[in-house]
Design a protein around this nucleic acid. Structure first.
Length: 823
RNA sequence: GGGCGAGUGGCGAAAUUGGUAAACGCACAACACUUAAAAUGUUGCCCUAUUUUUAGGUUGAGGGUUCAAGUCCCUCCUCGCCCACCA
């Protein structure tokens, strides 16, 4: 047998699979759609962490192919957006050229792994043939009133010189460059994601999504639904009133003041009645100049000013209460105004203490028998539910009951109503950058905002010399007058094009559909041609959706995964797709950090390039190692020595070929056959449950055992090759052909274990005395309790511990343990 | 502050879901092969005592339930991730 030489065999089989279209069996009855979160092609290339998820999907894809499914496993590139553009600016290359170059690098790196990707379906989000559809979906949203213009203050990154969505922030800073965000009023395009808030929440639990609970929870928190009551507080001696929102209406008798946010419109309306208006004005300017971050850093310090001369009335108690303006109340949430109950809200408590406002306790902790009732007021607010006190007719009710009754009273008197609020905001969808999809809208003086007609799509991104961001709040496109100045599609008069572009995330909202659309076109690889109308793709959508398995990083939990679900639901409403949810099963890939435990980055010099690993150890060894490192969803540290271990394992597998024989040596055969079937069972179950590490350790156990034998039956070797093949496809294929086969191992059937063979006839039964293992007996697996007891008591080691003692109890769990309890 | 998750050898980890803790691998050590090294093979490798055997201890700490706890319950400690003035 010649030496195991991955360099030689891996390239050979990659070419073979490609040429023979080994994985493209799209006409089988059962189908399975495996999807990776596609990368954005940065200039750095891949490091060894990136492929971990791709290896897992590849293992799964091969497993499903072997189980007889048509498996769709596509790959593409998310090439619009800031990473590509910033790279281009830094290196003074046009983004388009940079993207082409980086994609070539990525492809080369990915292909070295021998993945099952169907490159004929590759998509690139910055390709006009692709983004004409991104634009089309936007136009549909515009048509349905879900894309609208807004002038609300938005997050502005002074370094990236663009606005950002809430989802793009990290602790009040730009997620990409770390710069502090400032609030800026700019005309923006916004998508009405909040219109889908309820469905985005509800369907998480009601569409049989096999998602990790952690990700569902993150989305729930992000959507942030809360049920409460909105009611009005009148201003004394005035027609004016403010609406407040609360989830704790039960505490309303404890309201000792009310607060409006600095942005609240009432301040302008009642300014003549405010005696200290100049002071208020100063405060508003001060508040406006605070950045998001400052607002948060100073959160302990609650500032605010009383509106002198203004009195509000608590609708329940009819008491006069003061009104404040304070920036701890957020202008964009709820009504931008709150009732303040210092006794039962920590923020209000803090504010009240600072401004010497009364604290009125109206909810008491229910008394429990054993608890000492000290009667002392605790230092802080009591924020839990309890029993009402000093609340008029509502006293003695539980918080929950009181909330219901109080809301009824408000409704009856036409003062308020139940209201659901969400933390999630509408999606700020425009960017003042060059490298993105142009928003297909024309501004006409006469007709207003007008959609670019469908047959003019794609609205191509014009070529420019200078694509650097301007910082003026306008995109670089605004400087190209021949592009900007156009005719109104409606009236034919002169009009100007929208110059903002779409955000990073737009293209990835529907890409899993584009792969399916690519299946319809018969054009050669690399040529996208996705023709209108969308209905011509319905058959493909219905056949393949939803995506059966989706793997990617956890950082997308509240960004891409939320946006894509939103778009999918919109497309569902349009009748484009027939399923409510796009991704049926979702698993996140745990990060691979550097050998030093730090995040892999140029800065630490701990980046490992997969090309180097593959050329030293082979793609199979690398694949195997990344699946063996630890539980898939967990963070792991890279270890080059560990890859070497996987390589050693493959060398040993390779050497088994010297033992292959067809002679019958029954005893050895039996032993290996049993272990083989146990391994089939475990590997099958483990792949299904994404426990690749234990699947591989079981394969190692099997190999260790076979090594001890002199011979290996051909039939057993074949089964071994098949169950190893998803992890190490190249060596498996090579060994498969060595056995004389003329057809790929991936056209074989995944074996089923024989249940009779996975059962042991003899087992080692542990015998405990008082819970401590004192002996281990080799017995028949189906030994009866009587017999097991007899043999146990006959054994010296057991006698030693039971002699002269009263046997109180004997517990026997067949196949597991016997515990003798003595007194 | 809120939510989610995790703590097991020198390291990555496993444990049939309440039933022999440390499988499998990495690193390390000794030996064999070799002039030597690498590679490979064999053996050892949680802690303490001891004489190969054996006994005791051990899953972040403490308590509880149970014949039996890494696994279930309570209290506490540490770490990670996400969200964070959301009324």
């Amino acid at each position: 047998m010649e030496k195991y030489d991955p360099q030689k065999i891996e390239l050979k089989w990659q070419e073979y699979w490609d040429k023979n279209r080994t994985y493209k069996n799209y006409n089988r009855e059962k189908r399975f759609y495996v999807l990776d979160m596609f990368p954005y092609p940065s200039g750095e290339g891949l490091h060894v962490g990136h492929p971990k998820g791709y290896i897992a999907t590849d293992v799964f894809a091969r497993f499903k192919i072997l189980q007889g499914y048509s498996v769709l496993h596509p790959m593409g590139f998310d090439s619009f957006g800031l990473p590509a553009e910033n790279y281009a600016i830094k290196n003074k290359i046009h983004p388009k050229i940079a993207v082409e170059k980086n994609i070539a690098t990525y492809q080369k790196q990915l292909k070295a792994f021998g993945f099952t990707y169907d490159w004929e379906r590759e998509i690139i989000t910055s390709d006009p043939e692709y983004y004409k559809w991104t634009q089309w979906i936007f136009l549909k949203m515009f048509e349905k009133g879900l894309a609208y213009e807004s002038n609300e203050p938005v997050n502005w990154c002074p370094s990236c010189k663009t606005v950002l969505a809430n989802e793009d922030l990290e602790k009040g800073s730009c997620e990409r460059c770390g710069s502090r965000i400032v609030q800026k009023k700019l005309r923006q395009w916004v998508l009405k994601m909040t219109a889908y808030a309820d469905r985005l929440l509800y369907d998480l639990d009601n569409e049989n999504l096999n998602w990790e609970e952690m990700i569902k929870e993150q989305q729930r928190n992000w959507i942030g639904r809360s049920e409460g009551v909105q009611f009005e507080i009148k201003i004394k001696n005035s027609e004016e009133k403010i609406e407040v929102y609360t989830t704790r209406l039960d505490t309303v008798f404890g309201m000792t003041y009310a607060v409006v946010a600095p942005e609240h419109p009432i301040l302008e309306r009642i300014k003549d009645g405010i005696k200290n208006f100049s002071e208020i004005k100063r405060y508003l300017i001060q508040a406006q100049n605070k950045t998001e971050l400052e607002r948060m850093e100073l959160q302990k310090e609650k500032t605010g000013v009383k509106l002198e001369g203004i009195t509000a009335i608590n609708p329940f108690t009819k008491e006069d209460i003061p009104l404040f303006v304070a920036d701890y109340v957020l202008g964009f949430y709820g009504t931008g105004a709150v009732m303040a109950v210092p006794a039962h809200d920590e923020r209000d408590f803090e504010f009240a203490r600072k401004h010497n406002l009364p604290v009125k306790e109206v909810v008491k902790k229910p008394e429990t028998k054993n608890e000492k009732n000290s009667g002392e007021k605790t230092d802080g607010a009591f924020t839990e539910d309890g029993i009402l006190a000093s609340s008029g007719e509502y006293s003695r009710l539980t918080s929950e009951n009181a909330r219901g009754k109080m809301a009824e009273w408000l409704e009856k008197n036409n003062l308020g109503r139940k209201k659901v609020n969400y933390k999630m905001r509408d999606w700020v969808f425009s960017r003042q950058r060059y490298w993105g999809e142009p928003i297909p809208i024309v501004h006409c003086e006469k007709c207003g905002t007008v959609a670019v007609p469908e047959n003019e799509l794609p609205l191509k991104l014009p070529e420019v010399k200078s694509y650097e961001p301007t910082g003026t709040g306008e995109s670089p496109l605004a400087n190209i007058s021949e592009w900007v100045n156009t005719k109104c599609p409606k009236c034919g008069g002169s009009a100007k094009r929208e110059t903002n572009t779409m955000p990073q995330w737009a293209g990835s909202c529907w890409y899993y559909l584009a792969y399916l659309m690519r299946g319809v076109s018969n054009l050669p690889a690399g040529q996208m041609n996705l023709q209108f109308p969308i209905s011509s793709y319905k058959g493909e959508f219905d056949r393949w959706l939803p995506v059966d398995l989706y793997i990617g990083g956890i950082e997308h939990a509240t960004r891409h995964l939320l946006y894509a679900r939103f778009w999918h639901k919109f497309l569902y409403d349009l009748g484009v797709v027939s399923k409510k949810e796009p991704f049926k099963r979702l698993i996140h890939v745990g990060l691979v950090s550097g050998e030093d435990g730090r995040k892999m980055s140029k800065r630490w010099g701990n980046v490992v390039n997969p090309d180097d690993v593959i050329s030293e150890f082979g793609a199979d060894a690398m694949r195997l190692f990344e699946m063996f490192m630890g539980p898939f969803t967990q963070e792991v540290h890279w270890s080059t020595a560990g890859v070497n271990g996987s390589r050693r394992f493959l060398e040993r597998v390779w050497k088994l070929q010297d033992k292959i024989t067809n002679r019958k040596t029954e005893v050895a055969r039996k032993k290996i056959e049993k272990l083989l079937h146990k391994t089939i069972k475990k590997v099958t179950e483990d792949i299904e449950n994404f426990r690749f590490n234990t699947a591989i350790s079981q394969l190692m156990i099997l190999i260790n055992e076979i090594e001890k034998e002199k011979e290996l039956q051909t039939a057993d070797c074949e089964l071994l090759i098949i169950i190893l093949s998803p992890f190490a496809p190249h060596i498996a294929e090579e060994m498969w052909f060595h056995l004389g086969h003329k057809e790929s191992v991936f056209l074989q059937k995944w074996p089923r274990h024989d249940p009779a063979l996975t059962k042991d006839e003899k087992i080692n039964l542990a015998v405990q005395v008082n819970g401590k293992v004192r002996d281990i007996m080799a017995v028949d697996a189906d030994i009866s309790e009587d017999e097991a007891g007899k043999s146990a008591f006959a054994r010296e080691k057991i006698k030693k511990w039971t002699a002269g003692k009263e046997i109180k109890q004997v517990i026997y769990i067949p196949g597991r343990i016997m515990n003798i309890v003595v007194g």
